[in-house]
Write a protein that binds this DNA or RNA. Sequence first.
DNA 1: CATTCACTGGGCAAGCTGTACAGCGAATCA
DNA 2: TGATTCGCTGTACAGCTTGCCCAGTGAATG
Lengths: 155, 155
Amino acid sequence: MAIDHLDGRLLQLLAEEPRIGVLEASRRLGVARGTAQARLDRLQSNGVIRGFGPDVDPAALGYPVTAFATLEIKQGQGADVRAHLASVPEVLELHTTTGHGDMLCRLVARSNADLQRVIDRVVGFDGIMRASTAIVMENPVPLRIIPLVTQAAGD
Amino acid sequence: MAIDHLDGRLLQLLAEEPRIGVLEASRRLGVARGTAQARLDRLQSNGVIRGFGPDVDPAALGYPVTAFATLEIKQGQGADVRAHLASVPEVLELHTTTGHGDMLCRLVARSNADLQRVIDRVVGFDGIMRASTAIVMENPVPLRIIPLVTQAAGD
DNA sequence: CATTCACTGGGCAAGCTGTACAGCGAATCA
DNA sequence: TGATTCGCTGTACAGCTTGCCCAGTGAATG
């Protein structure tokens, strides 16, 4: 569960240069290949590493607009709303939260005009009472994990 | 920039089973290896695929609590606030947005109690006027891209 | 008709992966 | 103290993949 310094450096290496294999990683870390392999296997079976899926950029796919929508849901309609949102490709992520809204979702769209279409589709569903949307202008800190890994590794 | 059906299927394959290589992918797609390789290269130089970094689960690292914080910033303090937030490992993501708040950030913490520490650290900075936090309870739709890829590929 | 482009199918050397094994030092425990 | 367990090292091997190259084909372009 907890990771040590070597795990941290391994993750960092893989994050920076995903193309390197276990052998190259072991060389850079100054450990035997078997060790690097064992650590990597452990991280994966621990669930620390979920996978190595391709990191796809929605903007490059033609969806340069990102927005976050806070949704207010009718009591007891949660499951239906979740299923509805899951069926919309432009909904990249959905969370249920405490606080003012009940759900928070990340949307993408082809343009600001297209965002209107997406929002209409998202909120055009019976269980959703209100939605408030915040359009993303800049992304000063893109989704990252390495600083946290470094901290967890006890640096 | 736009991707076709073959690109879509390739991305889908890589997302489902990242461990398979180009050769195996080409076999499953029923195309020559060179083709799969060329498509993959193109997707990467296009920026559609940003990389293949390990997908690390913060929960498995000991940070099971996720929250979103909406921040209100003093005029003209944006740059300082961004730098401040970037320096906090528990800040996984930061966006500047339109709407009620000025910024939206994703936080993780070791526990609800620990979240208080993180929030204090995040908002304990001069340029930040107000923060409102929503704790994530459930994540019905984890960050995903494949449905969008499928749509972009023209299915 | 000539050209360009993407794809095919093949081949090669180099390198990596998966797996196995014996040896070693540190920590644990009776 | 002595035995055991555990993780790491160094090594080895077969099998496979990668990166690269080439010639040929079919479709689209000009």
